[in-house]
Structure formats: C-alpha cells, structure tokens
Design a protein around this nucleic acid. Structure first.
Lengths: 212, 212
DNA sequence: GCTTTTTCATACTGTTTCGCATAAAAATAA
DNA sequence: TTATTTTTATGCGAAACAGTATGAAAAAGC
C-alpha cells in the first residue's frame, strides 16, 4: 500500500510507525489512558512530541489507533486458533491458550487483555471507546457461538444445550482469564484452569490430551 | 471507638467521613486512579483539599482506604449471600446476583467490580495494590472452594469433580460478569447468563427456580 | 550548489495537577 | 469575655500536563 524505499522527498523518519504504535500500545496497556503521559509515550516510542502528533494525532486518536491495531492483531490470532481442526475441546483449548499469550505478554507481569484493561478503563468516560470495546467483545462472542452451533450440529454437544448461551459463557471465560492475568497469577495457574473450563463447556471429559 | 455527640473541642466537621469515602470511591471507580483528580475527588466529597488530606492523607492513601472499604462492604454482602440456605445452585445464583448488584451500581452505567476495574488499573504500577487485589480475589476463591467442598460432601456434586478447581472457575465467572457490566451490558443480559453459569457448575439443571 | 520537501529537535505556552501554607471560622474550656 | 482547639476556606508554588511554534537537519529534485 505505501511507497517504501525508492523516492520519498524529505528527511527520512527515524522511527518505524508499526513499532512505535506497538510501544505506545504497551504503554497504554500497562498504565491506562490517563496514567500514560505524552512523555511516557514519547519515551516508549522514541519519538518526540511533534512527531507523535504528526503520525497519530492527539492522545485520544493515538489511543483509538492502538485499540484498533490491537483488535486487528487479536482477531488475526483468534482466526488462526479457530481455523485448525480437532475436537471442540481442542479448539477451545487453543483459543484460551492464544488469549493467554496476549494477556501474559509484557515484562512487568501480566497485563490482561488490552480491551478490558486499558479499554474498559476509558469506557466509562469515553462513550466511543466503550462502544468499540463492546463491539470487540461481541465479535468474539459471535465467533464462539457460531463454533458451538457448528459443533452441536456435528453431534459434539448434546442437542438440549443452547449453543448461543453456552458460547457466550465460553467467551466470558476469556474475560476472567484477563482479569486473573492482570492480577498477577502465573502462567501455570492460568493454564491449569483451561482444562477445567473446557470440561465444563464440553461436558464429560471423556478424554483430554495435554501438551506443554 | 470514636466519640460522637457530646464534647468535641474544635469546629465541627462539615462532612460525614463515611459518606465522603463512599463518594471518593465512586469517583475512583468510574475514572480510575490516574483519571480521578483531586479536584474531582474534592467536588465529589464536598471536602476541600486540605480537609481531604487531613482525613485520608494523600491520593494514594485515599485510594487504598477506598479499596479496603470496598472490600469490607463486598465481604459483608458476600457473607450474607453465602449464609442463606438452599441448593448449591440457589446459593451460587444468590452470590452472582449480589455481585451484579455491586457491578451495576452507579448512574453512568455499569462500573464493574471496583477491585478489577479501578484496582487492577493500578495493579501493574503499584505492587501493593496488586497484592491487595490478588488477596481479595483469593479470599473469594477460597470461600467458593469451601462451599464446593461442603456441597460435594453433602452429595450435591459428584465425587469425581475437583471442588477446588470448580470453585476457582465459579469465582472467576464473577470477574467475567464485572468485565461485561463495565462494557455496558444491561442487567437483563447479565442476569440471563447466571442460570447458564450455574447450570454448568452444578451439572444437569434438574430443576431451577426463578424469581424476578 | 541551491531549492524544495519532509522530518526532527528544542523549547515554549497556558492549563492542570498535587500537596501545603496561612489565616479565618466555629466550637469548647476557663 | 478570652484562650484553646479543630476544622474550613483561600490560594500559593513547584511540577507535570497536553499541545504547538520555530528553526535546524536530512533527504530528493533541479
């Protein structure tokens, strides 16, 4: 989409926009919208204030860009987790592990989901952020509900259960994982809950595979 | 503990410390630690800055006092919900409803759990807050785990299930409710998930009672 | 080499922030 | 009334805050 190497007129920029956005995202992720000052963001990205404004606009715009970019990354990873085959339990396990990969990233301990940590912090104040976050959660809800419907049609779930209600709760369990990750629980503790959740959703744990 | 009416020496205070703390808590609850300025807190409590400092210390101390007070209120309500009789499903339903009562309080839409909304926002920055929040979550985990053990002993849960693991997931579902409440879901949506969660935990929903 | 274009770097402006100093106000004690 | 005690009220001061103006630096075009 963008011209790269050949012929850009002026002084070349000293930063990689994608890397800078990733660093800014991490800053918001850890410190929240209000807690992240422009000096923090400037230090994290290596960009000085005017460059930040030139590239991303003001603080609110940067936050929303970070939110959108996170959702894109998250969506891509989740699409991958959904795609692969296996039993319903295996797919759910993959989904939860993928989520944990996001929630436990970072050096200073688990940060949880960016949507529910930094995003929801602003949700009560900024209605547009709340809507974006709500849409993001809803999107995942629907994906899992659709998964449940497909698997029920295949006979992996008893016909008596409501796949939409079950999918919603399965999706909400990810929110719980985010909370616990940010509260400082270890990867081991969190991964140990995954089979319990999967067993609850998939019914009797006839057989379960584990891998490190 | 404190002398009330009779003979206090100086000028009487113009505020009720408990009411003021409740208002300050609501301000942190909605806007987070960094998002709540001392002017906001001053306006919410009706106390001017020096009175705030005299009563609660600096901003950090006030936040931690608010956190402790919230945990006390929450603990009291939860103790009540645990105490009453009924089947395991009925007790869990009461617990979740009690939680929702907290999460949906407030005028500007759901605020979620103070611990996981405002508290976790600070958790990554302030290690002491993270520990307090983690302890609070752990306390509830243990209470639910103990409930599960008792009910399993009574035969309400099959002997094959792990009551600790099940209790932990049941506790985590409250965190999920908090997230969804703050994301703006309605009371109706949230209450509709309660029976689904309860059914997952208690196994086959042989009979369920509902009340508005 | 000179101009044009784009970005970087410094530093500024006005506002907001937190915490506190100072003094007035409102009560009791003598 | 006068002194003492405790709280309120005003507002100060240094730092941090978001956003921007101004000019230097680094590239391409000519």
């Amino acid at each position: 989409m963008s011209e790269q190497s050949a012929k850009r007129r002026g002084r070349p920029r000293a930063y990689d926009p994608e890397v800078a956005l990733a660093r800014a995202t991490e800053t918001f992720w850890e410190q929240g919208y209000a807690g992240a000052s422009l000096d923090d963001l400037s230090a994290a990205t290596g960009m000085n204030r005017p460059s930040l404004y030139g590239a991303f606009g003001d603080k609110q715009a940067l936050f929303k860009t970070a939110l959108d970019a996170y959702m894109d990354r998250s969506r891509a990873a989740m699409t991958e987790a959904f795609r692969g085959g296996g039993s319903l339990g295996e797919v759910l396990t993959r989904i939860y592990r993928t989520a944990l990969g996001f929630y436990l990233s970072g050096d200073a301990g688990g940060r949880g989901c960016f949507l529910t940590s930094a995003g929801l912090g602003q949700a009560v104040i900024d209605q547009e952020v709340r809507q974006t976050v709500a849409d993001g959660l809803h999107e995942l809800d629907q994906a899992i509900e659709a998964l449940m419907k497909r698997r029920q049609a295949r006979g992996e779930l008893p016909p008596t259960v409501d796949p939409v209600a079950l999918g919603r709760v399965a999706s909400m369990m990810m929110n719980a994982l985010s909370v616990r990750a940010r509260a400082g629980e270890t990867r081991e503790q969190l991964e140990a809950t995954i089979p319990v959740m999967v067993a609850l959703i998939c019914g009797p744990p006839d057989r379960r595979d584990e891998r490190s």
